[in-house]
Nucleic acid binder design. Structure first.
Length: 730
DNA sequence: ATTAGCGTGCTTTTT
DNA sequence: GCACGCTAAT
């Protein structure tokens, strides 16, 4: 291992008092945090229980924990976690002080949307006229500004939308409280409110966490900021690490001012700048720094590296997005051949997710192994949400949202009208939905037949509640699947979709087993793990991709933060795409600067080679638009760049040879109705999830054609041609 | 209770 | 260009 540089050393040796570490890209900040924690424990005999390390992602937290434990040689027993998981744990412990039950539910953003929609209707508005997302964003902003619905209402003045939001906000909060449910914002806000209101509790935690470390401090929002301030108030042993140049979540409430004002908040704070970059070549670093100089309001940093020289970043002018993808593919293949690189050395970044499609299609047909990173697909699946709703209801029977979701899934003959009656009954009792269900036998609001159905559901849940108290996680989950008969509803179908659903359920079961093995069999902890899940982690990816370790990574610029690759391609460097805007006139300086930081983050991920691609035209929202190169390219001095014009060459030379011309690459289902004639028995095909296979038979014509394929790894499958995106192989 | 047919409206998303 | 959500029809 390399020796720490003097600045890193200073940071690691710092003992007491506030410290701000301005850690430039690739300057080894995680290393500093890890080493300092180990140093505190080993050399200053600080008991690990007095140390708190806060991160933004589970991935970062786990990585840190592992590195610390490895260095110490034993599990350190300090507190490391995300803001949200730390607050959740604190709130469960202190639940009685905040009017919660210990097993309160944590809801994710998709559930938030469901709740907002309900609140819109319940508040007396027409759901069709309001965009739930917009309402939710306003509510979230209000909450994070510690504004109550009443505050918000007064503040709204004559703004009709805001007046409406105030009512919806009130309704939303009322519903959540009734369910003992907290959204992500609540985890932070309720914790801060608890600490603000209760000096004794605050004192306890201040005394517990005497050494506090916060990673990615530039991304903290106001609640996170206050949380840190409150905890650090007594001992002032607070170290924050961050880089104002890498602040890319302003639109989510992150306040760059938190890091800029650190020395004002903690007078006498020591500032250490980590400016030596261990990642990128000088050529890449110079270009990135030149770009960043165009931003105002930043803390001056002079990143440097001793890896002099290196290839200048390539500016690749291409015809359009498809030429861009092919150019990138060609370059990857060339470098793999000429320089002996692996696919895993390459990454393609894009501004918006929609851009990934062309790369997926072209890489599929070019047979280039690739993986779209940061997909939360698994947790968005209906099956996962349903099963999680069961778990939530069982752990917290007050959770009417969860109850509503699964009361008739699978179908139990409890239809809309029956649920309506139950809701009204619950309302009249001033109780939650499941309590009403438990009392249904004492009334005659339902016909005997319907009442039996509801009682059946009640018994399932009551049984599972009992089982959850006596059995461990895997046994409980097995019983859950058995008693709810959830898998049966797909087993009885045998459609391509139902096969996928069963796979998802299987994947969930694997996850349960894996969790129990790795962490333990506590059901409540598992539920938290699911609710505060990490979309970046490997688990939950269905299919066989994980078997193949060598692939090109495809990801958004946002998802690229914290990662590094030997070769990076940044795509779509065009005005409107990067910087992204709909209306150039409406874009504010702050937004432009954040877009610039976003590109800076992308550029500084590259270790050896960097490509910035710009197309002459691009298809966006179904329309082809002529595009101009991004202003960001012009902001980098031309002598720092290697400008290549591929607008002519890309089509003629690349198109024909290695990569089949576009017309021969039907991403079949996507636009044209396909006839069975396109696929004949014996032909080799590729499916994006299931891998390669051989066509066995093909029945019918048009998009509803059923095609049977024997997959090399996934076995024999029946698929609907219209929905499965098959690619012919030769 | 399901489903086809249309209309709309599009960033980024650590938790 | 595609997905999602609502409406209307069975």
């Amino acid at each position: 291992m390399i020796k720490l540089n003097p600045q890193q050393e200073n940071a690691v040796n710092h003992l007491d008092g506030p410290l701000l570490i301005l850690a430039g890209a690739g300057s080894g900040k995680t290393r500093v945090i890890v080493n300092r924690i180990v140093h505190l424990i080993r050399h200053h005999n600080i008991p690990p229980r007095h140390i708190l390390a806060v991160t933004f992602t589970n991935k970062a937290a786990n990585e840190m924990k592992e590195r610390i434990n490895a260095m110490l040689g034993f599990p350190a027993g300090l507190t490391i976690g995300t803001f949200h998981s730390i607050c959740a744990r604190l709130l469960r412990r202190e639940c009685k002080h905040v009017g919660l039950i210990e097993s309160f539910t944590i809801i994710d953003d998709s559930e938030q949307i469901v709740r907002i929609k309900r609140a819109i209707t319940a508040a007396g508005f027409n759901a069709a006229n309001m965009i739930p997302r917009a309402v939710l964003d306003s509510v979230s902003r209000a909450k994070n500004a510690f504004m109550s619905p009443d505050d918000y209402n007064e503040n709204a003045g004559f703004n009709i939308f805001q007046k409406q939001v105030a009512k919806i906000y009130a309704q939303y909060e009322k519903d959540l409280a009734a369910d003992y449910s907290l959204d992500f914002d609540d985890l932070l806000i309720k914790t801060v409110n608890l600490l603000k209101d209760s000096p004794e509790i605050t004192s306890r935690y201040q005394d517990r966490f005497r050494y506090i470390m916060v990673d990615e401090y530039q991304d903290t929002n106001s609640a996170q900021y206050q949380f840190v301030q409150l905890l650090a108030d007594r001992y002032r042993n607070i170290m924050v690490v961050g880089d104002d140049d890498q602040s890319i979540y302003r639109w989510r409430g992150a306040e760059i001012a938190n890091i800029l004002n650190f020395s004002k908040d903690f007078p006498g704070a020591r500032i250490i700048k980590l400016e030596q970059n261990y990642r990128s070549s000088q050529a890449i670093l110079s270009a990135a720094s030149a770009l960043m100089k165009k931003n105002s309001k930043r803390m001056e940093k002079k990143l440097w590296t001793d890896r002099k020289g290196g290839d200048k970043p390539t500016i690749a002018r291409v015809l359009d997005e498809r030429a861009e993808a092919r150019y990138i593919i060609r370059e990857i293949k060339r470098m793999k051949g000429e320089e002996g690189r692996s696919f895993i050395d390459f990454a393609v970044f894009y501004r918006i997710n929609a851009q990934s499609r062309v790369f997926e299609e072209e890489m599929l047909s070019a047979q280039l192994p690739h993986k779209v990173m940061g997909n939360v697909g698994f947790f968005k699946r209906k099956e996962i949400k349903d099963l999680l709703a069961y778990i939530r209801l069982i752990l917290n029977p007050f959770d009417s949202g969860a109850c509503r979701r699964i009361i008739n899934v699978p179908k139990r003959g409890i239809g809309r009208t029956t649920v309506q009656r139950l809701e009204e009954y619950a309302e009249s009792l001033n109780k939650d939905l499941f309590s009403a269900i438990e009392m249904i036998e004492e009334t005659d609001i339902l016909q005997g037949f319907k009442q039996e159905r509801v009682s059946g559901f009640k018994l399932i849940i009551q049984n599972l509640i009992r089982i959850s108290r006596s059995e461990n996680l895997t046994k409980f989950f097995k019983k859950l699947l058995e008693l709810t008969e959830y898998p049966e509803m797909y087993e009885s179908q045998d459609t391509p979709e139902s096969v996928v659903s069963l796979e998802i359920i299987q994947e969930f079961e694997n996850m349960v087993a894996d969790y129990q093995e790795r962490i333990g069999g506590d059901i409540k902890e598992f539920a938290d793990y699911l609710s505060l899940h990490d979309s970046q982690s490997e688990s939950g990816v269905s299919g066989n991709e994980s078997v193949d370790r060598d692939y090109v990574s495809l990801l958004t610029l946002h998802n690229a933060k914290g990662l590094e690759f030997p070769v990076v391609f940044v795509s779509g460097l065009e005005e409107g795409m990067c910087p992204y805007y709909r209306d150039k006139e409406e874009m504010k300086l702050q937004e432009l600067e954040e877009e610039r930081r976003l590109l800076y983050v992308g550029m500084t991920r590259a270790k050896e080679r960097l490509y910035l691609c710009a197309g002459n035209e691009r298809r966006l929202h179904g329309k082809i638009r002529h595009s101009r190169p991004s202003r960001f390219i012009r902001e980098i001095p031309e002598e720092m760049l290697d400008v290549q014009n591929m607008t002519v060459a890309a089509v003629s030379t690349v198109g024909q040879q290695q990569i089949p011309p576009f017309t021969d690459v039907p991403a079949v289902s996507i636009s044209h109705p396909t006839s069975s004639a396109d696929f004949k028995p014996g032909e080799r095909v590729r499916h994006h999830k299931l891998g390669n296979g051989t066509v066995i038979r093909c029945d019918g014509t048009g998009p509803s054609t059923k095609i049977t394929i024997s997959f090399d790894r996934a076995g024999k499958r029946k698929l609907m041609l219209g929905v499965c995106r098959l690619i012919k192989l030769n």
